[in-house]
Nucleic acid binder design. Structure first.
Lengths: 200, 200
DNA sequence: ATACCTTTACTAACACTGTTAGGTAAAATA
DNA sequence: TATTTTACCTAACAGTGTTAGTAAAGGTAT
């Protein structure tokens, strides 16, 4: 039954080429300029073929979002592994998150920039649980060894993520009035405060 | 020359009705569902009339964004006036900002949610300077009376705004997994840390 | 080998979208 | 009264997401 296999393989190739073409278009002209017809032209197939692989345009963007989180998670895992203490892990991950956002602005904007994603959309991103777990672990360690071991780790995770995201998104939209170094300082300041806030 | 006046007045009425209709549509179905034709139908004029008042659709959204910031600024001014010390002013403004976001999610999403606004767009929002000044003032006071009077107030303003925005936007997209009270606590925690971070 | 069915891919259309060119009729000016 | 300006419209252009219907090709069963 090699035939069915070959077909399946081919189908997955087409699916991958759709995502690849979509991604290239997003990087080139921004996600607002992405269109089904442009994708179809890029992969040299007719438009309806795309709907054999994705329910709609949103599903394609959702897949790119997932890709983005997978890539982010990878980078975070690597950063975490190279650090030893929970403090260093958190610090390294914060910097990595920041760097990911600015080295992959296209990804970051797809991940967070399509309007504010609805709850249903967020729940479809299974990669988020890995992301949470990754950061939650050193936070828990830090809390356990700190002076307030009854602190809610989810609260701290939430804070960490929120503030990092806020820093990045405000920074992305107004890079003129606030200099680069300034933001690096804000980031540094935040990380220090965040970590010491869990110890004491 | 009452005629020209009457005409001018009428023209401004139409302009206002465009914004009103646009706003109503945004509140009803979200900003992604806003269309020029729907606005035209609502105001009972043909489509091209809208282009006599606004260069394009983006200009309408930009005006709504400005309206949002004006409303936010108003609320912040009121909150600031009712508080005495810089600490209380900052705290009150943070809560007011938070409340504004969740009582006017439509505004907040127009203000921040249309993709990540470009630098050029941000520069067109003159209301932002009022917003900055409003928060900058108590920050400066607090820094001056603190132990590190050479702290950059812009850095602190940037931090304040970023983290507040991050808190809100992360919260808006995932209200299921994290409870309401949790976020109130995160907010409280942040404000306390922010203020004490400038004193000491 | 013939008949059948499923898969694959297409063209063409529907119902929208933002935007604008061009025309008409009314109102203001000369 | 003649002319110009304005106010407003219809109709179109070029694009969007999405889908109905069709034709051909591939594999399966009789």
């Amino acid at each position: 039954m090699g035939i069915a296999e070959r077909k399946k393989r081919h189908k997955e190739e087409v699916r991958a080429s759709i995502l690849e073409a979509a991604w290239q278009l997003v990087v080139q002209d921004g996600w607002q300029a992405l269109s089904i017809r442009k994708i179809a032209e890029a992969i040299e197939y007719s438009v309806p073929v795309i709907y054999d692989h994705f329910a709609n345009k949103e599903a394609i963007l959702l897949e790119l979002t997932k890709q983005g989180f997978r890539k982010l998670n990878e980078a975070l895992i690597k950063a975490k592994q190279q650090a030893q203490s929970p403090e260093e892990q958190i610090e390294a991950m914060a910097y990595t998150y920041w760097r990911f956002a600015f080295e992959n602005t296209a990804y970051y904007q797809v991940m967070y920039g399509l309007g504010i994603p609805s709850c249903e959309t967020v729940n479809q991103i299974s990669e988020l649980s890995t992301f949470s777990e990754l950061i939650l672990e050193p936070i828990k360690e830090l809390i356990a060894s700190g002076k307030h071991p009854d602190t809610d780790p989810f609260l701290k995770l939430h804070t960490f993520w929120s503030m990092l995201h806020g820093l990045i998104s405000i920074n992305m939209m107004g890079a003129e009035q606030h200099k680069e170094e300034l933001n690096q300082m804000v980031l540094k300041d935040f990380i220090r405060g965040f970590i010491s806030g869990m110890k004491a």
